[in-house]
Design a binder for these strands. Structure first.
Length: 500
RNA sequence: GUCCCCUUCGUCUAGAGGCCUAGGACACCUGGUUUUCAUCCAGGCAACAGGGGUUCGAAACCCCUAGGGGACGCCA
């Protein structure tokens, strides 16, 4: 049998996600266990949302966790380039081939038509998907449309009947009717491929033998399998892992949980502890040992020990594990070293110094003033939020709106944050000073502190959101009913500001 | 709405028809150690979603029901 090759294929559209690390870990273990290779490929075909910054962050985060790849955009390999944006020609060529061989077709349908179509399908209680409108176009009409430069996409053809059997390493064969499968867009109107096409082409060209990915992909597996068939390629073995969950069992999301790897780094978790913890999500060592290194995991890895129930990503056990690493594994010297590495990161200090410099008279003033940058959640209670004009409900509302507002920011820059907060204060009709009061408490634990906007910029999205959420909980939390009302008010607010 | 997947203590899990009166761990509670606290140690609480089969025997295999989740984008 040929060499085992697995891959992780993150899309650089935000902060590095623990889910990415989770899937990377299992791909890495599987590959290593079979003396195979583990590949990192960047799926940046979404031109609008992808960024180089995010790509760099992902590479850094995975390295920090010790999840090292053998081939990737930064270290090359025999099957490059490993960044999909650099492989456009390859996809274009493959799409041409599919069209020529009659497996794919041009589609000139407008967005409006598609939206309308979906609406109608919903009413008719039919599966949602493309209706094959452009399939009826004659060659002449297609040529004419192309000549006129009408924007178009390429869609794949799907058998009209029968069903597709998806084999999976972890479960029984999954059978999905072709009628349920959409005529997926393979190439967007910007000429770039969609995930489905790029993924299949790359996995084949990069000789990936085992695709270990999240369960969310099961339903699109038929499309992928069909593409392999169209191309006449052998499909890799598929394996769909359970999804990491929020406490309410929904798919792990940043709205309900901190999901960025950077957050856990900043919260003072050791990479080996986080890695260990991810390893016990849906998997266990044969002897049920709970503390194990990446090497241990690779050595004893058995993909069949993956259990299918979606594990709740609950940090209580991570806390306990991390504590054990800290006090049982690290020697005093190592502890010292690791702690100073964590605490004295030049980047972080350089960001903080300008904020505190003008407020100190001695170095001893620094710790009390800046400790909140290095802490987890601030110690605050209901009394902390007492204010002469702002009620606790006001505070709660302000914090909730800010939490929602900042997650919509496309870039995390001080000025953007400031602008956003000012706008929000304005549209809520609060004085800036009053408006920022609960924010100070939530972020710094005190209203006597460095600029809260700069502090937010330094702390980052996930840490900020975690503190806002923490503060909201202290203020009594938000009931379902309240949440509904707040959401209503919020969307009205956003609507209003969009119009002005 | 349509389809797909999943279901063991609150949480992570063990369990491959008899070792199951269901084991371990976190959390929680109690006690001990400790000048305090933490650590550490000892103990306790706590689950096979429900119903029907198959079988001498079911947590495990099959069916139904319920619950949860996911997918249904020119996002990945």
């Amino acid at each position: 049998m040929s060499e085992v090759r697995t891959r992780i294929a993150p899309s650089p559209t935000g902060d590095p996600h623990v889910g990415t690390a989770y899937i990377a870990l299992f791909n890495l273990c599987f590959a290593r266990q079979h003396n195979g290779k583990f590949i990192l490929r960047i799926e940046d075909t979404d031109q609008v949302r992808s960024s180089k910054k995010s790509e760099d962050d992902i590479l850094k985060a995975l390295s920090w966790l010790g999840l090292i790849w053998d081939e990737g955009p930064d270290k090359g390999g025999d099957f490059g380039p490993y960044r999909q944006s650099e492989r456009s020609d390859i996809y274009a060529e493959h799409v041409r081939r599919l069209v020529k061989e009659g497996h794919a077709f041009h589609c000139f349908c407008s967005e409006e038509r598609l939206t309308e179509l979906r609406k109608q399908q919903m009413i008719d209680k039919k599966p949602l998907g493309y209706d094959g409108h452009c399939l009826l176009l004659s060659e002449g009409e297609i040529a004419e449309n192309l000549n006129k430069n009408i924007p178009h996409v390429i869609r794949m053809k799907i058998p009209s009947e029968g069903c597709c059997i998806v084999k999976d390493m972890l479960r029984d064969d999954v059978s999905i009717e072709w009628q349920q499968v959409d005529m997926q867009v393979l190439m967007k109107s910007d000429g770039l491929p969609t995930y489905h096409l790029a993924n299949v082409v790359d996995d084949h060209l990069m000789q990936i033998t085992h695709v270990i990915r999240g369960e969310e992909w099961i339903n699109s597996a038929p499309k992928h399998l069909l593409l392999y068939q169209y191309f006449g390629w052998e499909a890799p073995v598929l394996c769909h892992m359970p999804l990491l969950r929020n406490a309410d069992k929904s798919k792990l999301s940043k709205r309900k949980n901190p999901t960025s790897i950077g957050y856990y780094q900043r919260m003072g978790y050791l990479p080996e502890a986080l890695c260990n913890y991810l390893g016990m999500m849906g998997w266990s060592m044969p002897d049920e040992q709970e503390m194990f290194s990446l090497e241990d995991m690779i050595k004893h890895f058995d993909i069949n020990r993956v259990s299918l129930g979606g594990p709740v990503f609950d940090t209580e056990k991570l806390d306990w594990l991390n504590g054990r690493y800290l006090r049982e594994i690290l020697s005093d010297d190592e502890f010292t070293q690791r702690f100073s590495q964590w605490a004295f990161q030049p980047e972080m200090l350089q960001a903080i110094v300008p904020l505190i410099k003008q407020r100190v008279e001695r170095f001893t003033d620094i710790a009390p003033l800046a400790s909140f940058f290095f802490s987890g959640m601030p110690t605050i209670d209901l009394q902390s939020f007492e204010h002469k004009t702002l009620s606790q409900d006001d505070s709660k509302r302000v914090l909730q709106f800010i939490a929602w507002r900042i997650e919509e920011l496309e870039a995390w820059h001080r000025d953007r944050i400031e602008q956003t907060l000012m706008q929000l204060a304005d549209s809520l009709g609060f004085k800036i000073r009053d408006f920022l009061f609960p924010v100070f408490i939530a972020i710094a634990g005190s209203s006597v502190s460095t600029s809260v906007i700069d502090s937010i910029a330094v702390l980052g999205l996930d840490m900020t959101r975690a503190r806002l959420r923490h503060a909201i909980e202290i203020l009594g939390g938000v009931s379902k009913k309240q949440l509904k009302n707040l959401e209503k008010e919020y969307s009205a607010l956003v609507h209003q500001s969009e119009q002005s």
